[in-house]
Amino acid sequence: MLTVTDLDLFYGDAQALDGVSLTVRAGTTTAIVGANGAGKTSLIRTIAGILRPSGGSIRLGEREIAGLPSHTVCNLGIGQVAEGRQIFPSLSVRENLEMGAVIPRARADAARTYDRVLALFPRLEERLGQAAGTLSGGEQQMLAIGRCLMGKPDLIMFDEPSLGLAPALVQELFRTVRTLAAEGMTIILVEQNVAASLKLASHAYVLENGRIVLSGSGAALLDDPAVKQAYLGL
């Protein structure tokens, strides 16, 4: 579904991504793990069209999307749940969800998608008129996911979705990711909880200093001695 080949990204003279190549198959969950500063968020933002690569290719199916503006990438079916949630705090929950459906691909099915989101997150239905900025951290993350789903994505990229959440809410979050995966959603998961993300993932990549240094099934990397030592404290 998504193929990244020899992707390079620079911030000024500093190279953030160095020849990154990966493949994401339709209907699978792919984890990208690595330490802080490894380039995970840079990779997500480059795929999303927020950052412009200096070299390499990003193909969605047969279409080259590297360098396209983010609204175009979004309308082609790539959604992003950004690190830090990035909701509109002064808008209500309902208005935030409606904002997710403004892209052309989402408009025709907006009412049906809205019902689906509220079924997935009943707590949001209880707070539709509430300002999003007054929600708890867990509720804000639900809203961020719900707003992304309103855009009718074929692929969702999660960037550190459990960051700052209480343990019970983290488990709820991963249940949501599993539900979406079971429904056939293609998922890219960047997550600080390496063990949980590798358990969810059919395939995974380890990113270090802007380069892919390991790849394999989630189960294989979970059992890899180097991964255990570097990321799991084992």
Rank of each mutant, 00 (worst) to 15 (best):
R25M: 09
R25L: 12
R25N: 13
A26Y: 08
A26D: 15
G27P: 05
G27Q: 10
G27K: 05
T29C: 14
T29R: 12
T29L: 15
T30C: 06
A31R: 04
I32C: 00
I32W: 01
V33K: 02
N36H: 08
A38T: 00
A38R: 01
G39A: 02
G39E: 01
K40N: 03
K40D: 01
T41Q: 09
S42R: 03
L43Q: 04
I44P: 00
I44N: 01
I44C: 05
I44D: 00
R45A: 03
T46L: 05
T46G: 02
A48D: 02
G49Y: 11
G49S: 07
G49L: 08
I50Y: 12
I50S: 07
I50M: 13
L51Q: 15
L51R: 10
R52Q: 13
S54L: 06
S54F: 11
S54N: 15
G55C: 11
G55V: 09
G55H: 12
G56H: 12
G56Q: 11
I58T: 08
I58M: 11
I58V: 15
R59I: 04
R59N: 12
G61K: 10
E62P: 03
E64S: 08
E64I: 07
E64F: 10
I65T: 10
I65C: 06
A66E: 10
A66N: 08
G67S: 11
G67Y: 13
P69S: 07
P69A: 03
S70L: 12
S70R: 13
H71D: 14
T72I: 15
V73T: 04
V73D: 04
C74Q: 12
N75K: 11
